[in-house]
């Protein structure tokens, strides 16, 4: 009486215990037939793993973008739960304790502001455009990127947003409406956008700008609408034009504009 296939597999997989395990072990030591069957079973498992299952690895992309997105989403989750709207003058002693529990990039980036600057302040940055035709927008070859914002102007923008001592390379002093879509260099069209705060980062907005530019130039969207949608609520615009509720993974590390140094 030989060991059944199922019992043999259970033995191979270490799923047998007690008397059953003893009986199977004893039988295997006596029976060449069952030992051969066991060896064949092991070979089949090995072949499946090495020649089939492990081949799936080649389709797994590197973890960087996914890890960055997860961290941003977790940071957003932490924010939602904790009442982050603490007024500056109350920050004094509570701050040290709070940062430990909230663990958000929010305090690090904007120590004395009550709200994270996910979206520009409509009063400070309503958006401003230059008179520019669609043809001019699309003819411009933006090889050199948008005009660089001078340090003096950048400081003015930080000042207006009450951000003291901004950390280098953490922000992009961004055009609300990018020059590539007719936005002007007027301070009313500029705002400090954090790279690392939350899911809706400067990288994500860059991807949207790129998309809108293509749409304007292939004729599927008119320039005024693109400008208006960006100025009104760029996050809503992203959701609308990419037809998604969440930033796309491939946009998390999208870099077009240079960071403020």
């Amino acid at each position: 009486m030989h060991i059944s296939e199922e019992e043999l597999l259970l033995a191979v997989d270490g799923e047998l215990e007690g008397a059953r395990l003893e009986a199977v072990t004893l039988h295997l030591s006596h029976c060449w037939t069952c030992r051969t069957r066991k060896a064949k079973l092991e070979a089949t498992i090995q072949e499946f793993v090495s020649d089939c299952y492990s081949k799936l690895d080649s389709r797994i992309p590197p973890a960087d973008n996914a890890a960055a997105l997860l961290r941003a989403r977790l940071s957003d989750l932490s924010l939602q739960k904790d009442p982050a709207a603490i007024r500056p003058h109350r920050l004094a002693w509570a701050a040290a304790a709070l940062v430990v529990v909230t663990a958000s990039a929010f305090f690090a980036l904007m120590p004395f502001r009550a709200e994270p600057a996910l979206a520009p302040n409509a009063a400070l940055t309503p958006g401003a455009t230059r008179p520019m035709s669609r043809e001019a927008v699309c003819a411009a070859t933006e090889r050199s990127g948008p005009p660089r914002i001078s340090n003096a102007v950048a400081r003015e923008v930080f000042e207006r947003y009450a951000i003291r001592d901004p950390r280098p390379r953490s922000y992009e002093v961004d055009y609300l409406i990018p020059p590539s879509l007719g936005g002007s260099e007027d301070p009313r069209n500029l705002w400090p956008q954090p790279y690392t705060r939350g899911v809706w980062s400067a990288h994500i907005k860059d991807a949207l700008e790129d998309r809108l530019h293509s749409m304007v130039c292939d004729g599927s969207l008119d320039l005024a609408t693109a400008q208006r949608d960006l100025a009104t609520d760029w996050i809503a615009a992203y959701k609308k034009y990419f037809q998604t509720d969440k930033p796309r993974l491939d946009h998390v590390a999208f870099v077009k504009d240079s960071p403020w140094e």
């Binding site: 997860l70 961290r71 977790l74 940071s75 701050a95 940062v99 430990v100 663990a103 690090a108 120590p111």
Partner: peptide, 23 residues
């Protein structure tokens, strides 16, 4: 303000233990 800022700066990378565990 400066000393407070410094403290916040130091804590900025200290993600919550739970975030660290999950990542």
């Amino acid at each position: 303000a400066a000393s407070n800022l410094l403290r916040l700066e130091r804590a900025k990378d200290a993600a919550s233990p739970l975030t660290i565990e999950v990542t």
